[in-house]
Design a protein around this nucleic acid. Structure first.
Lengths: 123, 123
DNA sequence: TGCGAAACTGGCCGGGTGGCCAGGACGAGA
DNA sequence: TCTCGTCCTGGCCACCCGGCCAGTTTCGCA
């Protein structure tokens, strides 16, 4: 990282609302120690507008379901999950079934997509 | 929004790196017009670590592969994708195969996860 | 004009997936 | 105690998936 203490932090802006973007640009542009990223430039952090997601709307998943879900997101098959967790394939399928139910998904791919969208898992 | 011109913009911080978080907290805390959000408080914008997307590491996917990938991310089966795109299931499987290859994935679930991670698709 | 890339289609097949049935063990709480 | 939720296991089965083989057309580029 070689984080030079005197180096400026490069911030990227990703704001839909033009008014808000303008105000932030004006405010942040004058802060010493912070520099706004040029278009396409790599930034250390990004300012995003959507407060929308990151909603703590936690779906009630059991610990075991979270275990299975995490491995599913890695692309693991039921057999692999079974081996990993030390349970039978049948039990894995049972948990996967519950997951599909709770996440309102049609299949395992849909399930991880939904889970990622809702912030249940991190890709 | 009732964007009072004199109102402070509430910024939330979502940074893993403690050092970076500290520096940003110190820098942004002194900016008039900006206030850092209290834990749990609704913010107008969020500062997230790292340059979220805009990864220039574009995997070379053809248009058709992107079509298929998008529908895969919706949890669509090969049959559904075929109907949606007006092509045969065989062709869908052909594209899926290429996708698995290019994305270095073991299955469609893995492919969607990889694609999302690399910013190829938006969940 | 030939050549490769992309897109498309077909058949075949082993293994994976998801839905259904049934059951048992365990702990928390009424 | 008795019920409820969670976790676990089994069998059965239709269907889907991914990989293999083969082929066609269309397009741009050398």
């Amino acid at each position: 990282m070689s984080a030079d203490n005197t180096a400026e932090i490069v911030l990227a802006l990703e704001i839909d609302d033009p008014a808000l973007a303008d105000r932030l640009t004006a405010l942040l542009g004058n802060v010493s120690g912070i520099r706004l990223a040029a278009p396409g430039e790599r930034a250390a952090a990004t300012v995003v507008a959507r407060d929308a997601r990151s909603m703590p709307e936690d779906i009630a998943l059991t610990q075991r379901e979270l275990d299975v879900l995490a491995l599913m997101a890695e692309g693991a098959s039921n057999k692999m999950i079974a081996r990993q967790l030390g349970i039978s394939v049948h039990t894995v399928k049972f948990h996967v079934g519950s997951l599909l139910d709770k996440l309102d998904a049609t299949g395992r791919t849909d399930a991880v997509a939904h889970a990622a969208r809702r912030g249940v898992i991190e890709l």
